[in-house]
Amino acid sequence: MDSLTSILVPIHREGHRFVIIFAAVTVVLFLLWYPLGWVGVVLTLWCLYFFRDPDRVTPKREGLVISPADGVVNMITEASPPPELGLGEMRRTRVSIFMNVFNCHVNRSPIAGKVLRVAYRPGQFLNASLDKASEDNERNSLVIERADGQQIVVVQVAGLVARRIVCDVAEGKELQAGERYGIIRFGSRLDVYLPEGAIPLVAVGQTAISGETVLADSISVEPHHI
């Protein structure tokens, strides 16, 4: 029953036209050659699965930085935020989450706060698992500021087969932690630049769940053990 519930969820509105297109092609394939139609059925089901938009239960404790994407933590490094944001070259801890074509691609806000800046930059479509994808690929960046003044940078990075970054928020928008704010089609990555002093609570290779997995605790006074 749990497996069935995980599949039978609403789909993101960006997926509606794709599902219709896949279904229409499937009908044509059945008319052309019956066995080929079943290939279309499989692809249509995959399309439904790709655009799924499940509800998530987001931790609400102050200071937590929540994963904005489903996927695998494939990189934790020190890097400067995208230059188009105008935040200078001070390096911050960057947690990168790679989404393959089977992950849910709906993106969520890592913190509660106000969107101070939205910056889109066109670019290449390199494999999103590569380090240089953060610099060279098409991307859309947000600066979100919490009530205490701490800022988080979250960047949607297009991937090898991704050809559309969708961001549904504008500057001045107030977001809740875990609130949906965009989607990427069809395989990509999210970079989260943590506030100064915040230590990641995830490890490379760990699977993250959008809106639920805690990436860092930026105000905890508890000792960290690396």
Rank of each mutant, 00 (worst) to 15 (best):
D168F: 15
S6L: 15
L64R: 00
R94I: 06
S6Q: 15
V41D: 01
F50S: 02
L201R: 04
Q124V: 14
K114Y: 09
Y120K: 13
A203P: 03
R92S: 10
E84G: 15
V101N: 05
V166M: 12
A128S: 15
V115T: 02
E138M: 13
Y181G: 04
N100H: 03
G159Y: 08
L190Q: 07
V204F: 12
A203T: 12
V41Q: 05
G40E: 01
S141L: 12
D148W: 01
N103E: 09
P122Y: 08
G172T: 05
L31M: 13
V157P: 11
P10T: 04
A79L: 11
R163G: 02
N140I: 12
L29S: 00
V25G: 01
A79K: 11
K60M: 13
I111W: 05
P82W: 08
P35H: 00
L175G: 13
V155Y: 05
Y181N: 02
L194M: 06
S67G: 12
K132I: 15
P122T: 09
D2K: 14
F102T: 03
P10D: 03
V28R: 01
I209D: 07
C104Y: 06
V101P: 10
V65W: 00
L4Y: 13
P110H: 02
L32Y: 04
N103I: 11
N103H: 09
R164P: 05
Q156N: 06
M1A: 13
V42Q: 05
F98G: 04
T58K: 12
D191C: 08
H105L: 04
A208E: 08
L31E: 11
G149P: 05
P10G: 01
A177N: 03
I199L: 10
S220D: 03
W33Y: 01
I199C: 04
S218D: 05
A119F: 04
I7R: 12
V204G: 10
G182E: 03
A216L: 01
P195C: 01
Y181V: 06
V202F: 07
R56F: 12
N127Y: 06
T207P: 04
G172I: 03
G187V: 10
T213E: 10
L36I: 08
I66Q: 06
D136Q: 15
I152L: 08
D191H: 07
R94M: 09
G211L: 08
V161C: 05
W46C: 06
P82T: 10
D131I: 14
S141N: 11
A208Y: 07
A203L: 10
G205H: 09
F102P: 00
V192S: 00
R139C: 12
L194A: 02
P110K: 03
E78G: 13
T5P: 04
G211H: 11
P82M: 09
